[in-house]
């Protein structure tokens, strides 16, 4: 019996909790991608680097706050800097739209032209981020590191296996729930949110109803930039900030958006967790867990790890390929890309 409990604790500590917080980060990233796709009708390849840029801005402001001697008690100071990081990201997104995408909208360019333009924007954001903060690893999480420490948990329960919950993980999940609730409330209940959905549903009819397309586009960029920055800062608090890693996050984020059904906000959330859990479970070494639940003589010799963590992106890639082959509309019947 205690073995089973120990096994569950082990699983929670190494699979459930990490996947839950990673999934929240992907979900927020995918939500931004899916909103851009729903309204502007293209896959925004610059989203990963928008995350990096927003996070970079937040980190610089965090440093500034540190220099001024400001801190946020047990919580990371970056949370105080986050609203300013978001504002900077919003401004960058709006300026980019004005300077780049608006031109192609006027031309009524094909989606692939927008995608290519977004690749260009991606390199630009990329460069800006590196000019300001460099290419190296930045750890900017301060405050209390743990909500629950392994030792505390062991003392509390008397189990052999420990369970730790990091502050960043708890913050990630709480912020994700709040942000997702806000986005859904906004889309479902507010006049502006409904106009966004109407524009996404039927552009011509939205125009005939007097909905201002420029305003819808602006609000979409504002939302996407906020989501990108929040996702980026949460990921950075949880792990660390390195521009290249954020560029790589594009793959699992797109996999999440597409599994769920691109253009469907609910799908982006579901997709984020599907991809995160798949990735964590496939790269987890199951030896310890299996040893605890099977009789001693059946314990595995190897690590029972399906894929090394270095190959974790293969998981997103496989999910992406399988979904596009088997059910291109994704779980929630998004648009076919």
């Amino acid at each position: 019996m205690t073995d089973i409990l120990n096994a569950l604790v082990l699983l929670s500590n190494f699979v459930l909790i990490p996947a839950l917080s990673y999934g929240s980060q992907l979900a927020l990233g995918a939500l931004g991608v899916t909103l851009i796709y729903a309204v502007l009708r293209f896959s925004n390849f610059a989203h990963g680097d928008m995350m990096a840029l927003g996070t970079m801005a937040t980190i610089m402001i965090t440093w500034g706050l540190h220099a001024m001697g400001v801190s946020f008690g047990p919580l990371p100071t970056a949370l105080l800097a986050l609203p300013f990081g978001i504002l900077i990201a919003m401004a960058v997104a709006l300026v980019t739209d004005r300077a780049v995408y608006r031109f192609y909208r006027k031309q009524r360019s094909a989606p692939v032209v927008f995608v290519m333009a977004s690749v260009g924007v991606m390199f630009m954001y990329n460069a800006i981020t590196r000019i300001f903060i460099g290419t190296g690893d930045q750890r900017f999480a301060d405050g209390e590191r743990f909500v629950l420490k392994v030792n505390e948990f062991k003392e509390l329960t008397g189990l052999d296996q420990g369970l730790a919950i990091r502050t960043s993980q708890l913050i990630t999940v709480v912020v994700m729930v709040a942000v997702v609730a806000f986005v859904f409330w906004f889309l479902q209940k507010t006049r502006t949110g409904k106009a966004m959905r109407a524009y996404s549903d039927n552009e011509d009819l939205a125009l005939l109803s007097g909905i201002n397309p420029d305003r819808v586009v602006r609000i979409t960029w504002i939302l996407a930039a906020a989501l990108a920055t929040i996702a980026g800062v949460l990921y950075g608090l949880d792990k660390s900030f390195r521009p290249f890693v954020y560029f790589q996050l594009l793959l699992p984020i797109f996999a999440s958006a597409i599994v769920g059904g691109i253009g469907q906000p609910l799908g982006a959330i579901a997709g984020g967790f599907i991809v995160a859990f798949s990735e964590v479970m496939v790269t987890y070494a199951w030896k310890g867990f299996i040893t605890l639940i099977v009789p001693a003589d059946m314990a595995p010799e190897g690590l029972v790890q399906l894929l090394g963590t270095d190959y974790k992106f293969a998981v997103s890639f496989i999910i992406l390929v399988v979904v596009l082959l088997v059910r291109p509309t994704g779980i929630f019947k998004g648009r076919v890309i």
Partner: peptide, 25 residues
């Protein structure tokens, strides 16, 4: 007011929301 020949409703929105969008202005 104009009702086009095709694609004249917001298919993913409820009937009530369609009417609300009609009153957007």
């Amino acid at each position: 007011g104009f009702v086009p020949q095709t694609n004249n409703v917001f298919v993913n929105m409820s009937v009530e929301e369609n009417l609300e969008m009609g009153a957007y202005i």
